[in-house]
Amino acid sequence: MITISNLVKYYGAHCALDHIDLQVNKGTILGLLGPNGAGKTTLVSILNGLTAFQQGEITIFGLPLANNLEAIRRRSSFIPQALALYDKLTVMENLRFFAAIQKMSAATRRANIDAALTINRLHPLLEQKAGTLSGGQKRRLNIAIGLLNNPEILYFDEPTAGIDPELRNDILETISSFKNQGKTVIYTSHYMPEIEKICDEVAIIDHGRIIRQGTLATMLQEEKGDAAIIELLPAENKLLAPLVAGLDDVELVDGGTLIMHQQNGLKMGRLLALLEAEGLAIKHISYGTTSLETLFIRLTSPGRSHA
């Protein structure tokens, strides 16, 4: 359904996407996972024809993107992270407007609006101005607008950023339901549990490169290793940095997480004693690569290391 070959994107001298190759099959929910600035949003923008690229080939629905942008856009939809709607228009006015600017018959428009309202449970809020909706209701309207052309491919750019867990689950369930309708979803996020929950496949992107792609199970199986990840309770980075600097094979990532790449009992014992001596409390220790989160940290840590 989506094939990306050798995609290169530069912003000036900065390489945002570095020879990306990616394949997404029909009906898949692909999680595009990466730290901030990794290139996720750039990739999604390119797939929607919103950003130009310097090199590479992209085909969507078997059509080259460069020559078929309009046709491809009619069959896909981009749901941006920001609430791209009009606060001063009502829910219905927003939906009518965004439906009316897309090419479709009046009957299809009516049906698609109704379907978008139903999926996002917005019927009771039709006459309410978007600006007066709760954060969650706005998110649902943002998604509803993206469904107005009944797309075959949906691109979600961090759709749950800044919302509470209950609403997050609600949105994730909605997105999961698209799979049953045969839709393909590209879902960008840096929340690992979300990706684990709804995605069939994961592509981990870092520094503009896809460093792993596959099903979650395969990836975890392949990447099982000897690393230990030690998460600390909130501690001051300036305390940790000099401490870790003196340790062999231990790396500090994200200010409060330590990775011991080749763990053994002796090394671990020393580290734990040192942490105790410094009064630093441990929140969690995991051995091997048992979750997407630990895999993600291990794969992307070199670029984010503070040690």
Binding site: N48, G49, L50, L69, E70, R73, R74, S77, F78, P80, Q81, A82, L83, A84, L85, Y86, F98, I101, Q102, K103, I145, N149
Partner: peptide, 14 residues
Amino acid sequence: RRQNTLMRMSAMNI
């Protein structure tokens, strides 16, 4: 532009 509505419209072939 700030709320990305323009970007959304572009993605809708405007």
